[in-house]
Each structure stands twice: as structure tokens, then as C-alpha cells.
Design a protein around this nucleic acid. Structure first.
Lengths: 219, 219
DNA sequence: CCGGGTGTCAACCATTCGGTTGACCCCTCG
DNA sequence: CGAGGGGTCAACCGAATGGTTGACACCCGG
């Protein structure tokens, strides 16, 4: 059978080198190209397509130091014609990251500290059109379905992230291009879902449950 | 001349593979051993010493999924007899990370997104007993020396910790057996020292600089 | 002994925040 | 097509917060 051709997207040369070494060591997998950010990834895909030389799986990091981030890149890729499956391979497993990735159209979510064999399995699954989820990611999505009442929407999580950076309602409104009234509405919903009654308590609860990352934990 | 022998400490197999591939490609550098966390690193060092086969540089990640973290491991290593230089190679460049690493006795601080050549230079510098700092790390240390006026009092830190749990001023006052007025006074001082102007921003700033620990952030 | 930092407290005021009600649009799913 | 959920917005009110000024007591070190 044909080799599975992978496009690596990660801003760290070290990680790209590691994945290249790791994946190339496996039978049936080869690294077709690398990119340091989302924009470069899209250009690579375009270039390879012109060569009639498509990739079977995109292996994408979420956090990029600069340029287009992984979520944006994933949704862009998924809007191409006949898009390749995008397998997220990242460091974190917070609700916010997982949800954003899945909503962007990722077909899998793996963590970088996974053993090589698991990463290989995930690449094979993605190439076959299946999904491969890290346990935390799978659990989160299951919980979403069974218990959507206490689940925050992605918009609410987005707000929560801004909240945790210390922004005022007005600043968040400007950031999200919505009115201050809407921000307050969202906050009320967030409070009730988290069982708190103030913004600081919401931050505490959200970081505690790892719904968001504590500020400073992020790139 | 002799090869520079490196001990890799990183919890991600992917990163270890990448560094091994990258460093081995350079003339004069070889990877003597790998470890997945601080404890394993110390055991590796011990083992290699018994074999009379010391390493020249320890390349250490700060964030470990489990086991001894990089800062602890660094200070332990530096307390050995004739300790090898420890070069931090990590993802983040927050104040707290850099300061903790330097205080633990690291002889360098590099970021994983650095180009291979810079990493090579840093390893060579560390092996030669010199220091190698990423630009942001260097800038931070300079700033610390010139501007130490941002130190919080222990009472203020105490308040900050309560603040991060989401308490109101009244609740903090009750907790500390002081009046609400005093709480507000402290808060104003905290704001000015942290360069913020709201409680949520104070939490963000304080967790970012690891003046306090984010609630529930222990992994 | 006095200056300065720390911790404490009070009164005041403008702003923001928390919470509610009600409303509209859009999409999806039954 | 209708119901429901998500997202958006507005107006309102009481409560909390932020910001200021001024004050007092304590302790340390010059």
C-alpha cells in the first residue's frame, strides 16, 4: 500500500525534528513537508497540490509562537476542497483547547507526551478517516453530550479567557466586537453554570476545573 | 577535542527524539543519555558517574508532566559535587520561569522555538562554563536589577491569594480580621505595584509572575 | 529622636459590576 | 413549520468596587 504522507505544522524546530525522526521510523508513514505556522502550512498544502502530490494527514500544533494559530489554520484547511484530515498534536488538554480544535474541524486530538506508538496509531486512524482522541478529550466530548446544561459554550469560554486576563466588561466587549450588554449576559450565564456569583470567583472556578488555562500558562 | 556529552531531560518523547536528532547532527556534540523527569535525570547522572562517564551539559525542560520538575531537578543537580552546567530549554519565557531557573542555578535559558544553530551555540557556551540567555531572559534579569521597587509585602501577597480565590472585599476583610477599608488600601497598593487597575487584572498579573499560584494549578 | 515603611481605619464619590427583564435574530432539529 | 438554544442588545437598579484623601499606631534603622 501507499505510504501515509504527513504535513507537520509546529513552530518548534525541535519538535518537527522529533516528529520527523519518530514518524519516519515507522513503516508506512513519511513526512511530506513541514511548516512553522498556519500560514506556511496552507502554502505548503497549496504547493503540494500543484505538484499533484497531496498529503494524507496534517499533524498540527495549536500553539504557534507567531503567524496563524493552529485553530485558525485547521478551519482554513477544512474549508479547502477535499481537505486532508487534521490531527491536533499539542501540549495541553484544557476544555478550551479541545473544544476549539474540534469545532474547527480537527479529526483527532492527541497530546505530545503520548508514547510514540499512540501517536502512530492516531496518524493511521486519521489517515483512514477515523478519529483519534486523547482520553481527556474523549471524556470531555462525552460529557458535553450527556450533560449540556453545565457545559459552557465556546463563546462563553472565550469570554472566560478574556476575563482571566483581567479585562473589564467594556474591554471584553471591544475585543469581541459585541456590546457591553452582551458581555454581561454571557457573564451571568457563566456564573450560573459555574455556580459562582462574581468574576473573580468565576476565574478561580474555571482555572480550578481547567476549563481555561491560568494566565501565564499559555504561550 | 572531546565530544560534548549531553544529558537530555524532557518528558516528551517527541522532543527528546528531536533534540537527539538535532544535536547528533552537529559536530562535537553527542547525547549521552535521556531522562523523562528530574528524578530519572539524577539517577542517570549517578549511573554515568559510577561508570566514570560524566556528562558535560544537562539540557533540561522546566515543565514535566509527572515526577520531579525542572527547577527542583536543576537545584539538586547543582548541589552535586562538580556539577555539570544545566541549560534550560523550555517553551515559556514568563518572569517566574526564568527567575526560578536562574535562582536554581541554571547556567542558561533557551526557548524551544530557537533555531537549531542557536541551540547549538548555547550548548557549546554552557559546556565552556559560560551562560546563554534568550533575549527575553536577559532583558528580565537586567530589569530586575535596575527596578526592584515592585516587591509586594507578605501581607499584600496574603491578600492576593484570597483575591485569587474569588473573595469579595468584605469576605477578605472577615478572613483577615481587618476592615473592608484596609482591604481596599492594600488592593490599591497591590495595583500600583503590579501596574494594573482592577482585581481581575491583579490576579492575572500575579499568576503570570507566579507571585501566587493559580488556584487548583498543581499538576 | 525622627523619617519612612507597614498596617490599620474612615469618609466620600464616580464608576463598574451583578442581576433582572424583555426582546430580536439565526440556526438546527424534530 | 414550530420549538428551542445560542448569541446579540437595551434599560434599569442596587450593590460592589476603584480611587482619593487624610489619619493614627507601630517598628525599624539612621
Amino acid at each position: 500500500m501507499n505510504e501515509i504522507r504527513v504535513l507537520l505544522v509546529d513552530d518548534h524546530p525541535v519538535v518537527r525534528a522529533g516528529l520527523t525522526a519518530m514518524l519516519s521510523a515507522f513503516e508506512g508513514i513519511s513526512v511530506a513537508a513541514e511548516a512553522a505556522d498556519g500560514g506556511a502550512a496552507l502554502r505548503e498544502l497549496e504547493r503540494l497540490r500543484i505538484l499533484g502530490d497531496d498529503v494524507d494527514v496534517v499533524l498540527m500544533d495549536l500553539q504557534m509562537g507567531a503567524g496563524m494559530d493552529g485553530v485558525t489554520a485547521t478551519s482554513r484547511i477544512r474549508r479547502l476542497e477535499k481537505p486532508p484530515p487534521v490531527l491536533i498534536l499539542t501540549t495541553y488538554d484544557t476544555d478550551a483547547d479541545i473544544l476549539a480544535a474540534v469545532e474547527a474541524g480537527a479529526s483527532g486530538y492527541m497530546l505530545k507526551d503520548a508514547p510514540p506508538e499512540q501517536i502512530r496509531q492516531a496518524v493511521l486512524a486519521a489517515a483512514a478517516g477515523q478519529t483519534a482522541l486523547a482520553p481527556k478529550a474523549a471524556a470531555l466530548l462525552m460529557d458535553r453530550i450527556s450533560n449540556p446544561a453545565t457545559a459552557l459554550t465556546s463563546r462563553e469560554i472565550q469570554l472566560l479567557e478574556l476575563l482571566a486576563t483581567g479585562l473589564t466588561n467594556r474591554a471584553m466587549a471591544r475585543e469581541l466586537f459585541i456590546s457591553e450588554a452582551t458581555v454581561k449576559t454571557h457573564l451571568v450565564h457563566i456564573y450560573s453554570k459555574l455556580g459562582v456569583d462574581s468574576r473573580t470567583a468565576a476565574i478561580a472556578a474555571a482555572t480550578q476545573r481547567r476549563i481555561i488555562r491560568a494566565p501565564g500558562q499559555q504561550a
